[in-house]
């Protein structure tokens, strides 16, 4: 049972991560690979606040999201000023640099990781309560992002992606919009980080590396860029798949490479056969009113 709870919580967390990453790269058109690092910032901030400063866990999780959000604004302000393309370069540096810093500080636990993170709900109400908590946050995230994408803000995001110059010449502030999208997406990743930390109670820099970036990208692309349900399907499928293989009693020496091959071939197959992903987004923006009509 314990194992089942773990898998569901991981799925919920990946749904938050994939949905928020889709918001940033799909809806916002902002190419960044630093999503896992905001996940890490949320996890570390929340863990340290709760463990070393006695902040109540629920507040620590929220603060973790907020700190990730602020960090993302700093990155966006410094790199988006130069140009949109610069964000990719800036995000690579930020991803690698932040993890390097975490590895080399002693109060973050260094490369060995941070342990003894206070638990939340699990000891008082049982693990089911934590599962419910994680799933609820995941659902709220998906619904919030869907609501934004299908309203007036979503219309403006589409226009900005289509033609930023024309968008700005009509009086719209593209820079503020990009920073807002990046901040919201990254803040949600930070929130997921806190939820991770207080369940598994141990975090290490290696859990947030570039492999995570590619896993998230795979989830979003295989699921379907710019669709509400695509990244969810992608997250659940790609999280369940490696778990499922572990049931076929294979030696670990085979299992690891097998999972890698599976991921890689999945991406390749989708790029050739179904580039729009499992769930294709409409080529054009459709708002709430339009669906109702």
């Amino acid at each position: 049972m314990e194992y089942f709870y773990t898998v569901v919580i991981l799925m919920a967390l990946y749904v938050i991560l994939a949905a928020s990453f889709n918001f940033v790269i799909g809806y916002g058109g902002l190419v960044s690979i630093a999503h896992p690092v905001f996940y890490a910032i949320g996890a570390y901030a929340s863990a340290l606040l709760a463990r070393d400063m006695g902040v109540p866990v629920i507040l620590a999780i929220l603060a973790g999201g907020l700190i990730a959000l602020l960090a993302s604004v700093a990155l966006a302000l410094s790199s988006l000023r130069v140009s949109g393309d610069y964000l990719l370069i800036g995000s690579i540096g930020f991803q690698l640099g932040t993890l390097e810093v975490i590895k080399n500080l002693h109060w973050t636990g260094g490369a060995g990781g941070l342990s003894n993170i206070p638990s939340f709900l699990t000891q008082t109400l049982g693990p089911q309560a934590y599962v419910a908590f994680a799933v609820a946050v995941a659902m709220c995230t998906v619904l919030l992002l869907r609501w934004i994408a299908h309203g007036p803000y979503g219309r403006a995001m589409s226009a900005m992606r289509d033609d930023e110059l024309a968008f700005a010449a009509l009086g719209r502030n593209a820079m503020v919009m990009k920073i807002t999208i990046f901040a919201l997406g990254s803040g949600l990743a930070g929130l997921a980080g806190g939820i991770y930390a207080h369940y598994f109670r141990f975090i290490a820099p290696g859990q947030f590396d570039l492999l995570q970036s590619s896993a998230l990208l795979t989830m979003v692309v295989v699921g379907g860029l710019r669709s509400t349900w695509g990244p969810i399907v992608g997250a659940i499928a790609l999280e369940a798949l490696p778990q499922a293989i572990t049931f076929i009693n294979l030696p670990p020496s085979v299992l690891g490479p097998l999972q890698g091959i599976l991921f890689t071939s999945l991406v390749l197959i989708f790029m050739f056969v179904r580039p729009q992903g499992l769930i294709a987004a409409s080529a054009r923006w459709r708002g709430r009113q339009e669906e109702a009509r």
Partner: peptide, 9 residues
């Protein structure tokens, strides 16, 4: 113009 939007949008 914005190709992913309708005329009205």
């Amino acid at each position: 113009l914005f190709p992913s939007l309708s005329v009205l949008d």
